[in-house]
Design a protein around this nucleic acid. Structure first.
Lengths: 208, 208
DNA sequence: ACAAATTTAGACAGGCTTGTCCAATTCGTC
DNA sequence: GACGAATTGGACAAGCCTGTCTAAATTTGT
């Protein structure tokens, strides 16, 4: 394991103040001196960790957004699969969990560092996702007012059932991820799908 | 400010390891020795802080759930107002922000302490909220499959736009809270409201 | 006003951590 | 195999923090 990876792990587990360079070195399988040779001091190492995580997470998020179902065959199934990919590859994986925890724990201590993350991460990824939803709406698959709002709500919904697990730093099971995504997408489509009433109901309405 | 309140503030700002008893004592306006007299040691003090926050937060959440609109006159407006109350009094206030941060930062270090929180907090509050939604559905105002899922999704939706602010420890403005709640409730009702199509659309369907 | 209880300031030991220095060793490359 | 670069282990100073102790000051109850 590289020094930065080990440092990420220890910073997350112990917090910045509680992280101990000897432990990081041991976990990385190098001597303490090597850590100092490579990264100067603790703060420097921390910044390197956050930059590394931010970069990898963003890459993962964009790669996943690239798999967005632009021409869905089964919209519900395709969106659920997309949501599961998003969760598995970006939010529940090692980098995602670590970055989230570091932002929450140390965000106030390094305003400029996390402002950078905010601009390059959520800022760009959310509008990229919003663009995909806008395209789905334009193609007639959805009925969306504000695509940015819809994108944020999509993410909120498919993660709704995982919040507590995330809070306590746990990793949801594959089944939990799937259930949360399925429930979230169903509600999302309930709100944003073009309404095509099933034949029975449509007939009932016609005769009302 | 009481010792426990000052400790909550410092633990949140600096993390458990970074928190310093001298600073807590100074912020509380007492001597260091008094802190030790009252709470024994640092870990004890931390536990007292979390218990205190948990208790106050739970009281606030239940008090707010008691204001749930059981007999809504304007369902959308009433749910928005409820969501705003929930955010203002339970999630964005001092206790809510602090407790959330402590759980995220130190949850793994004190499993039994936060398991207790989990059982008394989210466990009971979510089912209490679910019961209110179930009653609304029973009274014919909503069309809900699983009330527990609906309750979690309601909370996720009305907070969807505040996630980033929460992550960085900020306090959303009143206007942001209102907008997030309004957007969230609109989507929630889009998915769960009993569908009464407006006259024009209903007519169009009837002639289709 | 007085006695008991509490609080305070400060000193203090012990432990831990950061960051530096250095000599010895290992590694990569030619 | 030989040479330069990187790595290692360990010693080290300096600083910080926890938790204890003590004697003086202050508050509280009566």
């Amino acid at each position: 394991m590289s020094v930065v990876d080990a440092a990420a792990s220890v910073f997350c587990r112990e917090g910045y103040a509680g992280a101990n360079i000897d432990l990081i070195a041991a976990e990385a399988g190098v001597s303490r001196q090597t850590v100092y040779n490579h990264h100067g001091d603790k703060e420097n190492l921390f910044v390197a960790v956050v930059r590394d995580l931010t970069e990898r997470c963003n890459a993962g998020i964009f790669a996943t957004i690239a798999t967005f179902p632009d021409q869905p065959t089964d919209l519900e199934a395709d969106l659920i699969a997309f949501a599961v990919r998003m969760n598995r590859n970006c939010i529940c994986n090692r980098d995602g969990r670590f970055l989230r925890k570091l932002i929450q724990a140390e965000g106030e201590r390094y305003p400029e560092l996390f402002a950078e993350w905010r601009g390059q991460g959520p800022g760009r990824t959310w509008s990229a996702l919003a663009a995909r939803f806008a395209r789905l709406a334009f193609a007639g698959h959805l009925s969306i007012g504000d695509p940015d709002v819809a994108a944020r709500q999509f993410l909120a919904l498919v993660n709704a059932e995982l919040q507590i697990t995330f809070m306590l730093g746990g990793v949801p099971t594959e089944e939990e991820v799937l259930r949360s995504a399925a429930n979230g997408v169903r509600t999302f489509l309930g709100a944003f799908a073009k309404k095509k009433l099933p034949a029975g109901k449509q007939a009932a309405l016609a005769h009302a």
